[in-house]
Design a protein around this nucleic acid. Structure first.
Lengths: 159, 159
DNA sequence: GCAATATAGTTTGATGTCAAATTTATATTC
DNA sequence: GAATATAAATTTGACATCAAACTATATTGC
């Protein structure tokens, strides 16, 4: 694989390439199963909660609220989520997974796990070091609010 | 930083978060200097070459050729690159940096290098291992043999 | 109690991306 | 040498995304 000489020593370059390549592999696999990779984070966050409002989901997934409008419409139209009016606030509504939505989340997660096994094999004995360094990078460059928030709902998941 | 339990053993998760954090830091810094991070990869690749065609640039930067059309128009309009007709092939033309383009590339590169120094410090003695593993990931997922799809564009810098 | 302000969600507009179709030019084949 | 195929760049269409404007409802402050 050809790497421009001037990038050879830049960690940021390798980080970006590796991330994009592995994500694209996941996206292609999901696409073949007619699954949108963009759904993965939404469904996975929802899978751990009774229900959430679009705004909460937006903060946790790190995407603008306006972006979720069409995603939620698509997910709802496909019967993967359902909306429920909030009796206390007529502006708002809550979203929760349907049974099909849960199955879809599991399918996507299964695909993600398969790709992560590839990553495990590639990393080999360096896996612990890799995860440690990546963790330090994430911590150093600051944790955006959306990821900070994302932690709380998922923190206590059964292993 | 807290990591959701269901993700804490997934390399892909740490890879994505680390990449997202460091790229956003770079993008914010570039944005403050009124620079489009999307220009960085194009200008940097061009900075290393006499000239290139849009197709070569597209392959090296891993973006679809059609995507480059508007970018090159913007860069050209700003006087950062110039186009030259190819006398041997009237369909094609070459692109090269202007003096201003080189200055702009240097400004962006300086910002990128600052962030990569942070990454160096964070990686410390693990830098070589990190780059090696990231390289293997890119090579594996960017190589068609591992996936039926023959999609293996070369990715490049944060943009 | 009502006007001002804030909030939830959507709509709109701009940008960046890919894929497919198009156009024009070059190569290949018969 | 004409027909066909390939190639370079662009155009078009479909999305995803963010930010700003907008609508409808809630909350706050006076």
């Amino acid at each position: 694989m050809l790497v421009p000489a001037m990038f050879q020593n830049l960690i940021g370059y390798h980080l970006r390439v590796a991330q994009e390549m592995s994500f694209q592999a996941f996206a292609r696999a999901a696409g073949k199963a007619d699954l949108k990779p963009g759904w993965y984070s939404l469904l996975t966050v929802l899978a751990d909660r009774e229900s959430m409002t679009p705004s909460e989901l937006s903060r946790i997934c790190g995407r603008d609220r306006s972006t979720l409008t069409s995603s939620l419409k698509a997910l709802s139209h496909r019967g993967l989520i359902e909306r429920r009016a909030n009796p206390d606030d007529q502006r708002s509504y809550s979203v929760r997974l349907t049974e099909n939505g849960r199955k879809m989340q599991e399918r996507l997660h299964a695909i993600a796990v398969v790709y992560d096994r590839h990553l495990d094999e590639i990393a080999g004995k360096d896996k612990a070091v890799l995860i440690a360094v990546l963790g330090r990078i994430a911590a150093t460059f600051g944790t955006p609010q959306h990821l900070e928030d994302a932690v709380s709902p998922l923190r206590d998941l059964p292993q």
